[in-house]
Amino acid sequence: MIIEPNENMGATDSMESVALSPEESHGPELATDRPVVCEFTNTWYSYGGGEPAVEDVSFQVRKGEFAAILGPNGSGKTTLLRLALGLLKPTRGSVELFGESSARFRDWSRVGYVPQRVEGMGTRFPATVEEIVEQGLYRGFNPLAIFRRHGRKEILEALDVAGISHLRRRPIESLSVGQRQRALIARAIVGQPDLLFLDEPVSGVDAVGRDRFHELISSLNREHGMTVFLISHDIGAVMQGATVCACINRTVVFHGPPHHITGEHLSELYGFPVDVLLHDALHEHR
């Protein structure tokens, strides 16, 4: 079931209004005429045949959206991301990228990915920030890759957008968590993908770093026209940039524009009573 928001709801409506009604027309903020770039249809997944980590999830991300996926720890957010990237195959249902099953999807130049952490880190991985960003320009087998460095201009641009031009010759291992995240963002955007998947780091980044991270993602969405699929746990920050939210607790609790989220949704999401204080995103933005 795809849960659509009710268009009669205003941004400042109180908690008792619930915007969940599949029969109602689409909300104005969800431009439903745009092509779907990522789609979950009755998707189930369980690790090793145990309890399902993802249960009957259906929602779509459309071109140009900034979709924030919210949910508590262990709610299956990262599992959804891995399903979308074809790193896991759904036990039931389907996951599609650009209209093709994500397990068979091959056109990876259209997709950028920023993981929460990277396996190679902590092993003295010998690469400069520039070399890591260069990886994002991989376009299939090239026997001369060892001799050639390519895309210098693109690399510098991506570093500039990510705000880390001054770190380009630094070993990746010497960076802080927040800086590494930016290096990985530069790596993800250097090939100018249409769709950007991000798994926000849980720890190691302070409040200022987190704000700047969200500002950067918003500008990639607004100014660079990238569709964003962001896994986050920071509801406040996400409210400012996201155009659509999916609240996940194994299944979809809410899907719609962020200002339609009510306390009830969040209570259902986190399992304890939550009140919503809505900030006006535009005015609060520095």
Partner: peptide, 22 residues
């Protein structure tokens, strides 16, 4: 090593990232 340099370095850095790079 010379001809699969890109593939080898990518998957040494991170297997999932390498997969999403193609």
């Amino acid at each position: 090593v010379a001809s699969f340099y890109a593939e080898l370095t990518q998957s040494a850095f991170d297997q999932d990232l390498a997969h999403v790079s193609g």
